[in-house]
């Protein structure tokens, strides 16, 4: 079967601490690369146009929308996805807080929210409710009405300050 691999780029990228070297088509989105080439399906895609925030990952520690980037733009850089936070047996304090405060229902928006919150709390370890809502305003959630997410972020901040 002939597939269109004429135009490929040798991508080298570090994801959650693991270095990957892979040939990719330049047009492959970072979100598709993470999900389908690397099998890191925790990063979700809700809109493919940069509004919902479900696909948020960290690029060299800064939150970016992986649906708005090509994988090749991550060349030589470091990506952190939700899989890079905690594990089922050792949840990250933010993840713990989300479970305790019921900060998720269907869980589809959650990975993008966790990555966003991680950076937010690093920059603002003791945020007010208003600051939290502001920080979350780029992440849509259809299930929770955000209240328990806000509570979870407050709880996470508390845990992380300890």
């Amino acid at each position: 079967m002939e597939t269109t691999l004429q135009n490929v780029f040798d991508l080298a990228v570090t994801v959650n601490g693991t270095r990957y070297e892979q040939a990719v088509e330049p047009r492959i989105l970072l979100s598709d690369f993470l999900r389908h080439d690397l099998g890191l399906t925790g990063t979700h895609v809700g809109c493919e146009h940069g509004v919902c925030g479900a696909c948020t990952v960290l690029l060299d520690g800064e939150p970016v929308r992986s649906c708005l980037m090509f994988a090749v733009q991550a060349h030589g850089r470091e990506v952190t996805t939700v899989e890079g936070l905690g594990t089922i047996d050792h949840l990250h304090p933010i993840q713990e807080a989300f479970q305790e405060a019921h900060g998720l229902q269907c869980g589809f928006c959650t990975p993008g929210i966790l990555t966003t919150v991680k950076v937010f709390l690093e920059q603002n370890p003791n945020p007010s409710e208003e600051e939290i809502r502001e920080a979350l305003s780029g992440n849509l959630c259809r299930c929770t009405g955000y209240q328990h997410i806000v509570d979870a972020v407050q709880l996470a901040a508390e845990k992380m300050r300890k």
Binding site: R35, T41, G42, H44, L91, Q95, Q99, G107
Partner: peptide
């Protein structure tokens, strides 16, 4: 009671349809 399903959802280990390969 806290939810049983959360740890999987929180760590990106829960399977959604688009995750099926």
């Amino acid at each position: 009671v806290m939810r049983n399903e959360d740890p999987r959802l929180l760590t990106g280990q829960a399977q959604f349809v688009d995750d099926v390969e």
